[in-house]
């Protein structure tokens, strides 16, 4: 066990019948970081989180939470959890749901303080079953923070939220990390990971295929995207060195290439009239697609 880690999977494998969910993965959550766990469906994200929460046991390797087995209730008193698929008692009011979860922790926020910090005070008296899906996610987030946890596990926290609510949630997550909390986030929204994560772990087929900061992951995929308005033929540009793909969209060429400078020089030489030039570094979404496709192929 690395003493700097809040949660750790070491050499963990897990099978469900003939399906290998995790195949010897290592994962560490460090203090004060927001770690995004990404991967296509069936990559093993949920299994990895379940092992860290003590909901399942590894076949091989160890799962540790604050240096203890996740089955120890003392370890779980330092975590908050927001799950993707959960139906809370519809008859209980929001404030009551928070009071119940707060009672599990030795040093929790009051339900009112939790509602205040998560902007859910107006929902306090409403029965949970009468809330919209977005409001339910906000209440589940309030339940995750009410115990003042050092480590939060958030599974797709912004699914079902409208844009302002999502931005508010992002601001709260940043605030939590600034306040000293650590967060493990699983998300399908790559822009969410890009905007929030200090570190990203990409899983595919039960293995860790990449880990690092968002910039490090982008750099792994050394592609550039170039768009410009030009009359040059697609076939001509596609034959240039380093060009990977070329498409034409409403008079503009979209080119992906390993070396943008060479392509731009060639453009200047071949078509002096080209205009509206834009050059982009690959985003996390492109890096993710390329990384996971490599594993799939």
């Amino acid at each position: 066990m690395n003493n700097d880690c809040l949660a750790e999977l070491s050499g963990v494998s897990k099978r469900f019948g003939s399906v290998v969910a995790l195949d010897g993965i290592d994962l560490q959550v460090r203090p004060g970081e927001l770690l995004a766990v990404l991967g296509p469906n069936g990559a093993g994200k949920s299994t990895a989180i379940s092992l860290l929460l003590g909901l399942q046991q590894p076949d091989k390797g160890t799962a540790r939470l604050f240096g203890q087995s996740p089955l120890m209730i003392e370890a779980r008193r330092s975590i908050g959890v927001m799950m993707q698929e959960v139906a809370l008692a519809p008859e209980l009011r929001v404030r009551e749901q928070l009071e119940l979860v707060a009672s599990y922790y030795p040093d929790s926020l009051s339900p009112d303080a939790a509602m205040d910090t998560t902007h859910t005070t107006s929902l306090g008296k409403r029965p949970y079953g009468k809330l919209s899906n977005g409001q339910k996610r906000q209440v589940q987030f309030a339940m995750a923070v009410v115990g003042r946890p050092k480590l939060l596990f958030l599974d797709e926290p912004t699914v079902g939220l409208d844009l302002p609510s999502r931005e508010m949630m992002w601001a709260m997550l940043r605030e939590l990390v600034r306040g000293g909390s650590s967060i493990v986030l699983t998300t399908h929204y790559l822009e969410e990971a890009e905007a929030l994560a200090d570190r990203v772990v990409v899983l595919a087929k039960g293995r860790t295929i990449a880990t690092g900061t968002v910039n490090e992951l982008r750099a792994l995929v050394g592609r550039k995207r170039i768009t410009c308005a030009t009359s040059l033929a697609v076939e001509l540009v596609a034959a240039w060195p380093g060009v990977q793909t070329v498409t034409r969209d409403r008079g503009r060429l979209q080119i992906t290439a390993s070396d943008a400078e060479i392509v731009v020089k060639k453009l200047v030489a071949a078509d002096a009239d080209f205009h509206e030039l834009e050059v982009h570094t690959a985003g996390l979404a492109e890096a993710f697609t390329e990384l996971t496709q490599e594993v799939a192929s």
Partner: peptide
């Protein structure tokens, strides 16, 4: 939202009993 409300002590020996 106040940062103070969300802040947790980084001291990992905070009581969990």
């Amino acid at each position: 939202m106040s940062a103070a409300t969300f802040a947790v002590e980084n001291n990992l020996s905070r009581s969990t009993t």
